[in-house]
Design a protein around this nucleic acid. Structure first.
Length: 237
DNA sequence: GCGACAG
DNA sequence: ATCTTGTCGC
């Protein structure tokens, strides 16, 4: 596990991305969908109180039942800058992952992996730092181009930066807006899409993202209501 | 120079 | 991400 260093400014952050990009592993297929564990991570903010709360929720990949969950509070240490989201989210996400009592298996995060201006989005960064297989599932296409996929669940089209396929626009439910899937670390794009579809069995968003989103939001509300400073907690089933 | 821009 | 009422629908 590589240690995270907070860059002093945006130029340094971009340099870090350029340096770490070489460590991304793209020639492993990753774990097969429907087996082992899958973990969703997400982050909620209260910028006024300078508070950030991350959540990690581990699911059984076959049943989508919750196996374990963990939250971590922290202080906001980096602004939101398009292309530099990882520096805002990763410190709290790493803390939440470290609080888990079990191995996370495949990690699913909100945002991008290779679908990034420097091919090193949040999912890639998190993968390199933890060594875990990671995929990125985003709700919008950022700056990339794509053709509208077919109307049915499972239909997809390439997400393009110029002529390069950096991800896919994937329809996870009939007649809903597509999600944007890209590889983070130690997975292939085919496998990342297969996992996303398996996890989006009942809703447009993957179950991992839904659970992590709900957990970090409620943990943030509790932190604000209790007026507490940064704390951490986890539970297992 | 201006606008667009994951969460 | 976050600020927010009512409202359509299962």
């Amino acid at each position: 596990m590589t240690t995270f260093r907070m860059p002093a400014d945006e130029a340094e952050a971009r340099a870090v991305q350029d340096a770490l990009r070489a460590r991304v592993v793209l020639d492993e297929p990753g774990p097969p969908p429907g087996t082992g564990r899958v973990t969703g991570v997400d982050v909620a903010y209260d910028d006024d109180r300078d508070l950030v709360v991350a959540a990690a929720v581990v699911l059984d990949a076959a049943t989508l039942e919750v196996i374990a969950e963990s939250t971590a509070e922290g202080r906001v240490t980096f602004p939101y800058v398009p292309g530099l989201l990882a520096f805002r989210e990763i410190p709290a996400v790493l803390s939440a992952l470290e609080g888990l009592p079990v191995d996370p298996g495949l990690v699913v995060c909100d945002g991008y992996g290779r679908a990034h201006p420097r091919r090193f989005g949040l999912a890639s960064h998190l993968g390199v730092l933890t060594g875990l297989p990671v995929i990125g599932v985003a709700k919008n296409p950022f700056t990339f181009r794509y053709e509208q996929p077919g109307p049915r669940r499972g239909d997809f089209t390439p997400l393009l930066d110029e002529d390069e396929e950096v991800g896919r626009a994937l329809r996870t439910q009939d007649a809903t807006k597509p999600l944007f899937v890209s590889v983070g670390h130690r997975t292939t794009l085919d496998n990342a899409c297969a996992h996303t579809l398996a996890l989006a069995r009942d809703f447009r968003q993957p179950e991992t993202t839904r659970r992590a989103d709900a957990l970090c939001r409620s943990a943030l509300r509790e932190a604000v209501a209790g007026g507490r400073g940064p704390a951490q907690g986890s539970v297992a089933n």
